[in-house]
Design a protein around this nucleic acid. Sequence first.
DNA 1: CTTGCCTCTGACGTCGATGTCAGGTTTTAG
DNA 2: CTAAAACCTGACATCGACGTCAGAGGCAAG
Lengths: 157, 157
Amino acid sequence: MRIGELASRAGVSVRSVRYYEEQGLLTSTRSPSGQRHYTDSEVERVAFIQRMYTAGLSSRTIVELMPCIDSPSEETSDAALERMALERERLSAHIADLLRTRDTLDALMATARAHQHRMRSAGADSDWQPPASCRPQPLSAADRSGRSDGQGVRTPW
Amino acid sequence: MRIGELASRAGVSVRSVRYYEEQGLLTSTRSPSGQRHYTDSEVERVAFIQRMYTAGLSSRTIVELMPCIDSPSEETSDAALERMALERERLSAHIADLLRTRDTLDALMATARAHQHRMRSAGADSDWQPPASCRPQPLSAADRSGRSDGQGVRTPW
DNA sequence: CTTGCCTCTGACGTCGATGTCAGGTTTTAG
DNA sequence: CTAAAACCTGACATCGACGTCAGAGGCAAG
């Protein structure tokens, strides 16, 4: 397939695909006229690259990880594994940070909802309904660590 | 305290503190000579702002959330709560993405380690020790969702 | 052959949080 | 008092992953 189809299948822009190649993350076979052609497997690769980017890795980092992916031979393992472990650690730290931040948001929303309720039971407009965003959050199924207070605490961050 | 102390206590640069004020995230009382002065509570506020930034929120978004934080009255709640719920959703999605990415990294590392082991049992240098990064990962205590395969699968992403 | 769509290279623009530098004032330590 | 250190404003620089535009060529359908 050509670059446009690859891009739309992987859900990125054509520009991004060219950029990935420019960064050494992707290769392409060229038609005699110079147009890039790709196989189906490149779609997943591009999606993978995109996920790495959104995970906060830089081009340089992804490049350093790629040899471990392209040819998991004894050549690549040593340095690349080190980097992968390091990035894994960074990822875990970042995840923990985001979880804490989400907890903070939850606490803030809880206090705000408490305010709404106080308003509601004291106000004259008793037919008022809280917006959808105010109803108890489903807490996203997976990964919870505990914490469900945030009860009237001042500056809950 | 003055800006330098605030910055170092909150673990950010002086430049950043001024930037936060410029963005309307922070206020300061000025001494007659024009120098900024802060109270202890501002330290936590700056740290909070920083956490929001590292969580991927933009200045504009944080600003929109701030009224809900500064004065949780009935004025602020409606629009701000909507935004908080929205940002919470974005956060959850991002967290899920990062977890998936970390799983991918784990799978990649597992295959790499498998390679190392094959090398080790077949190679001549039997006294070789895998680097620290190759030993089984502690999986970071909290939040696991399952997945511990990655056994020789080709292109595990 | 022409028309419309896709692709190419190359370059410059962008955006957001910060770094950094200049030139000047204020505070602090000796 | 004086020198060092911290602070001020204002401005320009940076970096990374793209957007976007220009100008030229490729390719299938009518």
